[in-house]
Simulated assay, not measured.
Amino acid sequence: MKLFKTFLTFILVVTLSQCVNKEATQEKTKIDLEQQLLESIDKFNKAFQEGNVKVLESMITENYLHTNGNSKSIRKKDWINYLSKREKEIQSGNLEVIEYKLSETEIELYGNTAMVTGKVTVSNKKSSDIKNNEYRITNIWVYESGAWKRAGFHDGKIK
């Protein structure tokens, strides 16, 4: 009987430790995913500021949906076309992106999907005219094939 109680105690300890290890692993995975997402967002925003269409195109989903507060939603192809024109303006010096900064970032993970909200501050110079704007943004990111990709975007102008 004593051997049976010892065996049951051993099984209980092993089972509980597995549960604790599983929770710790899940929390570590969540932290790792958030860190990878933040790095992806930084890479994406840098590419946008510099007008790097190749990087941006590689970081959005095939069914990407982009919505600005002042226009109708567009799909990946149309957004890439817009970015290509913008890239040429940046390369020619007609457009200088002085600042493109995301702040007040909040992330909510839902498995392999994340909702990211924040505030974007933008400062552009075009024909010696400097424009400063701020936007509230919501992005949808999905983790696919070992990388975070942006699946959706929406902004609303603050001022």
Score class of each variant (00 low, 15 high):
Ala151Asn: 11
Lys30Thr: 15
Glu50Gly: 02
Phe153Glu: 00
Glu89Asn: 11
Lys101Tyr: 03
Thr25Met: 14
Met59Trp: 01
Leu3Val: 09
Glu134Cys: 00
Glu144Cys: 03
Gly93Gln: 05
Thr15Gln: 10
Leu109Ala: 03
Ile74Ser: 04
Glu96Asp: 09
Arg150Leu: 09
Ile41Ser: 04
Tyr64Ser: 03
Lys126Cys: 01
Ser123Val: 11
Phe44Pro: 03
Asn68Gly: 09
Glu144Met: 14
Asp155Asn: 11
Asn124Cys: 00
Val120Asn: 01
Ile74Met: 10
Ile140Val: 15
Asp155Ala: 00
Tyr143Glu: 12
Lys149Asn: 06
Cys19Phe: 09
Thr61Ile: 10
Glu89Leu: 12
Gly156Phe: 07
Lys85Ile: 14
Thr29Ala: 08
Lys101Val: 02
Leu109Ser: 04
Glu57Gln: 13
Glu27Gln: 09
Lys159Gly: 05
Asn81Pro: 04
Ser127Arg: 13
Ala47Ile: 01
Gly69Val: 06
Thr67Ile: 09
Ala47Arg: 00
Glu104Lys: 15
Val120Pro: 00
Gln91Cys: 07
Lys88Met: 10
His66Ser: 04
Gln26Pro: 04
Lys54Pro: 05
Glu134Phe: 00
Ser58Arg: 01
Thr25Tyr: 07
Ile130Trp: 09
Asp42Thr: 11
Ser145Met: 11
Gln35Ser: 14
Ser40Ala: 14
Ser103Cys: 00
Asn112Arg: 06
Val20Arg: 08
Gly146Phe: 02
Leu109Cys: 03
Trp79Leu: 07
Val97Gly: 00
Val142Ala: 08
Ser40Val: 03
Lys88Phe: 08
Ser17Val: 07
Arg136Met: 12
Ser40Thr: 07
Gln35Cys: 04
Lys125Leu: 04
Glu27Leu: 11
Gln36Ser: 12
Ser123Cys: 07
Leu56Lys: 01
Thr9Leu: 10
Lys77Arg: 12
Lys131Ala: 07
Ser58Thr: 11
Gln36Trp: 03
Asn52Glu: 08
Val14Tyr: 10
Lys125Arg: 15
Ser71Pro: 08
Ser84Ala: 14
Ile137Leu: 12
